[in-house]
Design a protein around this nucleic acid. Structure first.
Lengths: 210, 210
DNA sequence: ACCCTGAACAATCAATAAATTATTTATTTA
DNA sequence: TAAATAAATAATTTATTGATTGTTCAGGGT
């Protein structure tokens, strides 16, 4: 079977799929619908993608890439301290996710399916986010803001601690501002620690003020 | 309608329900089954409970009370520092939950239903756990281990950060030891903070060692 | 009066049949 | 021969039906 890695027909299919999915949802868009939108027969789609799930995977990956790009911008910002970067990083993530949930909630149907059917991909993406997080931590070490012996492990733990704000299924009930309040609190907690001492006392006061 | 708050018939029903649910699951035990096990007619159950869901609620509450008792013991332990209490508190919680998941996974069917149908109860129980957590933090403040301006808000945030280890649906895929590794890391992170400074640097090293 | 039963009702669930849809293959077209 | 189609197949989904179950209630026994 011939399966070109990248071709304008493939992107045409993906673009059509995005529109259809946005309107009707993944479950309701059939391969026949998609083929018709592309001006071809259903069977011909299989010359460009192994199956429907692989089309969904492309859509999910593109959506995630957008998120990743937004977060990379935060990490690269020159005029932010590492502390500020960390806050902005997670708040951006929350907002991007939340916006996508409202604007086209259909993409989450896909996200859930991919998380279930292609878990490796989700884990891969989590790893990429963690890499950005690690960058922030390392830059904080370099600037003297942080003193983290193992930034890789620290990044993993921060990701665990903020997992609640990364999976929409977990927070659908709470309003965005409440979520953000919690998230800021958690980040604050991480930034300050709770152990007694000169530095953490200072940060603790800052967090207590809001 | 007569509805005695507490009577041995009620407890007899609950006990029978626990056995039936443990064996067949909540969905598969019918009110008829339960009535037969109690030597009465199905209709008569409604003299003691408003409905099936209220029986489930009792079972859930009893299971939760057991967890709460175990955790209260941790909090009351005299020979533990607040730092140690905090670690033991969450590890105990994880283990109790995980054990219950293996030993009679049927109780989680009930937990999920109650979380969906009676969310107030779940929130009430979260609040009770948080109260214990607040006790630990306050005792740490008193002993000089911690320096937390607002223990109530800190407890809320710690609860948020460890939410991943409280909902079995989220961690069913990971093995217990991996979960515990993550949880210990998160607690360590919270205990140390990542900001530079004398105290947090010390704790950071401790965490890095394991 | 109180406690309970058993039949009746309405809602829910499970099984099955029907229809739809993803995928494959044989065939056609250019 | 490359590229597409259209028909065939296999898998999934959706509707429909029948059975089960939660709940109520009019009465019967104590």
């Amino acid at each position: 079977m011939i399966m070109p890695v990248e071709t304008d027909i493939r992107t045409k299919i993906i673009d059509a799929a995005r529109k259809l999915v946005a309107r009707y949802g993944y479950g309701k868009t059939t391969m026949a619908d998609l083929a018709e939108a592309c001006g071809m027969s259903p069977g011909n789609l299989y010359r460009y993608f192994p199956g429907k799930l692989d089309i969904a995977e492309q859509l999910a990956q593109q959506a995630f890439d957008e998120e990743l790009t937004a977060l990379r911008e935060v990490v690269r910002k020159q005029d932010l301290s590492a502390t500020e970067k960390l806050k902005v990083f997670f708040c951006t993530q929350l907002h991007v996710t939340h916006d996508k949930l409202n604007e086209d909630s259909k993409i989450f149907e896909i996200a859930e399916i991919i998380k279930r059917e292609r878990p490796e991909l989700s884990n891969e993406n989590l790893k990429r986010l963690r890499a950005l997080l690690t960058e922030i931590l390392a830059s904080g070490n370099a600037s003297g803001e942080f003193n983290i012996p193992d930034v890789v492990s620290a990044a993993e733990m921060i990701q665990c601690a903020t997992m609640k704000y990364h999976y929409p299924q977990l927070f659908t009930k709470l309003p965005l501002n409440e979520l953000e309040r919690e998230l800021r609190g958690v980040i604050g907690l991480i930034l300050q620690g709770i152990s007694a001492g000169e530095t953490s006392r200072t940060n603790a006061k800052a967090v207590a003020r809001g």
